[in-house]
Lab assay of single mutants.
Amino acid sequence: DNLVIALHSYEPSHDGDLGFEKGEQLRILEQSGEWWKAQSLTTGQEGFIPFNFVAKA
Rank of each mutant, 00 (worst) to 15 (best):
N2M: 14
E11L: 12
T43N: 07
K37S: 05
L29P: 00
N52M: 08
A57H: 11
G44E: 04
G33W: 03
G16N: 09
Q45R: 13
F53A: 09
E34C: 15
D1L: 10
Q45L: 13
I49A: 00
G47A: 02
Q25A: 10
H8I: 11
D1P: 09
L7T: 08
S32N: 14
L26D: 00
I28M: 03
E24P: 01
S9V: 04
D15L: 12
K56V: 13
K56L: 13
L7F: 05
E21T: 13
E46Q: 12
S40M: 03
F48W: 15
H8D: 08
W35P: 01
G19R: 13
E21L: 13
H14Y: 10
Y10Q: 03
W35H: 07
G47Y: 05
E11N: 13
F51P: 15
S40R: 09
I49V: 08
S32D: 12
E11F: 14
D1V: 10
E30S: 11
E11Q: 15
I49E: 02
K56R: 10
S9N: 11
N52H: 12
W36C: 10
F51D: 08
E30N: 08
L3Q: 05
E30Q: 10
G47I: 03
K56I: 12
T42D: 08
R27C: 08
F51C: 15
T43C: 04
Q45D: 09
K37F: 15
G33E: 04
A6Y: 02
G33M: 03
G23N: 05
K56E: 10
S13D: 09
R27L: 14
E21V: 14
Q39W: 04
G19M: 06
E24D: 11
T43Q: 02
F51I: 12
H14D: 09
N52W: 15
S9I: 03
D15Q: 12
V4N: 00
N52D: 14
L3P: 01
F48S: 06
A38Q: 01
E34Q: 12
A55T: 14
L18R: 01
F48V: 07
D17E: 15
Q25C: 15
W36D: 01
D17V: 09
E21P: 02
G33F: 03
L26E: 01
T43D: 05
I49T: 00
H8L: 12
Q31S: 12
V4D: 00
H8P: 02
Y10G: 00
G44Q: 07
A38L: 07
R27I: 13
A38F: 03
L41Q: 05
G19T: 06
F51E: 11
I28G: 00
N2K: 09
F20E: 01
W35N: 06
F53I: 07
L3H: 06
Q31K: 13
Q39V: 13
F51K: 15
H14T: 09
E24G: 02
G23T: 02
Y10V: 05
A57P: 12
G33P: 03
L29N: 02
H14E: 08
D15V: 13
A57K: 09
E11W: 14
G23F: 05
E21W: 07
G16F: 12
E34H: 14
L29D: 02
A57C: 14
V4G: 05
D15A: 13
E46A: 09
N2L: 14
L7N: 04
Q39S: 06
K22F: 06
E46F: 12
S9G: 09
L41W: 02
H8Q: 14
L26I: 05
L7V: 09
S32T: 13
A55Y: 10
L7W: 06
S32W: 12
T43W: 01
Q45K: 14
P12R: 07
G33T: 04
Q39A: 08
V4A: 08
F51Q: 13
A55R: 08
E30I: 09
L18A: 02
A6L: 04
S40L: 05
G16P: 02
W36I: 10
A6S: 03
N52P: 05
L7G: 02
I49S: 00
F48R: 11
W35L: 08
D15M: 11
E21Q: 14
I5K: 04
